[in-house]
Design a protein around this nucleic acid. Structure first.
Lengths: 234, 234
DNA sequence: CGTGTTATTGAAGTGTATCAAATTGCGTGG
DNA sequence: CCACGCAATTTGATACACTTCAATAACACG
């Protein structure tokens, strides 16, 4: 665990990839050689919680990587309901699907908490990939996993009931983004249901002793194993 | 349109990529150089309608490309219901997601009609991609589009009702695989619903003059435009 | 021709969305 | 520090689209 004295963003004037805490995690910044090319092309940008990083329908101008903070990719249904497609934390990237498909964004990117991002323009990305072909294989592996996850969640939406999906959501959100205090609405958007159904299911889970929500609005998981059982249809 | 005298498979002893009708469509067989490498590695294999090409859970051994016929990727829900993830026709490929994600197959591949496939072993694929990095970019673009389509269908599953999804299914299946006489069950598996709901919706569409199903079991679309309107929520 | 698959129709049940109203909790500014 | 305002949460009542089950009819097939 890296030390973290400040509760706000830990590095406010990050000037180099060399000192970036994510330089070993990121898709792009794998080898020292690549790091040099990224270094020259990159621009740092910051977003506050709730701000939109890019809008669905626009053309991608490059790729964002996340140094700090949390971002959600979301689509708005015609009726106005928002659904969360993917959640991306430090070390992750944004905009690569649209860029490589040569399509407009099909989802918007919204900062869930205050973020520090790194932007690399499209032209530079293409140069970097031309110079270091192994990066394409790495990204290929990454997108392939994205595809599996999307198809899995799609199948869950068909086969499973709301409570199974909510149990999955609780486990996933706690495992990957435990520091975040997720609202009932956000859980609903991730699980593909409504806040009301989340609330009723949570109180059911509480009655069964799977979770505890007496501490304000936060949710404490009492038994991961029992909760995981609830992700399977009975 | 290529001439097609026989109703069965048109080429029964395909001995060379040079004569393969799909050599310009396929992901892998783009340039003459690549074609030579594929030529040496490839094996032809045939499957009859209904046969399984690979099973969910197994490890990928290479990539299949489709010369002739139609294949569906399907997942079985624990309760036994099958859902169609993707449909792949001539020029398309199978098994690439799992191979590049280095994961087991998460879906099974089933021949919808008699098929002639071309198998290229994993090791050869890797060699080919090492020699021709631009192929990785091409595949990256392809998988990125797969990902968009998966996420779109996932969202449709949440936002839209069964009739909207069935309208979409009719348009899609007719546009891409018109020669195939799809059963109500297959339409249901593609639209994410049940055969009964498909039947009731079809007779509703017929009452509205959108389709005609008096000719046996086949479905004739009377107005693509009106049907497309029915893919949007009212 | 039988036999199994596909299609069709009907009735019944149910999970979840929707809507509305009350309550809680949190952040903000006085 | 308290009061205020607003968003998040909670609860209840209602509606309904869809699934499920069952039983029959039509078709394709060997």
């Amino acid at each position: 665990m890296p030390s973290k004295k400040e509760s706000t963003l830990s590095v406010h004037n990050l000037s180099s990839c060399q000192t970036c805490g994510m330089r070993n995690e990121s898709l792009l910044c794998s080898s020292p050689d690549v790091l040099l090319m990224v270094e020259k092309a990159r621009v740092t940008c910051r977003f506050k919680a709730g701000q939109v990083i890019f809008y669905s329908g626009n053309d991608p101008l490059g790729i964002f990587t996340i140094q700090e903070g949390l971002v959600k990719l979301e689509v708005m249904s015609p009726s106005g309901a928002a659904h969360t497609l993917r959640l991306v934390g430090p070390g992750g990237a944004l905009g690569y699907r649209s860029l490589f498909a040569q399509e407009p964004y099909h989802a918007s990117a919204v900062a869930v908490e205050d973020c520090e991002l790194c932007f690399i323009p499209k032209a530079d990305i293409m140069n970097i990939f031309k110079s270091y072909p192994h990066l394409a294989m790495k990204l290929l592996s990454h997108i392939s996993k994205d595809l599996r996850m999307a198809e899995e969640k799609w199948m869950d939406q068909m086969d499973k009931g709301a409570s199974e999906r909510i149990a999955e959501a609780l486990l996933f959100l706690q495992e990957h983004f435990a520091h975040q205090n997720w609202t009932r609405r956000e859980i609903a958007q991730w699980a593909g249901t409504t806040p009301e159904t989340v609330i009723r299911t949570l109180s059911q889970f509480e009655k069964e002793g799977l979770i505890d929500q007496t501490d304000g609005r936060s949710i404490r998981i009492l038994s991961r194993d029992l909760l995981r059982e609830r992700t399977e249809i009975r």
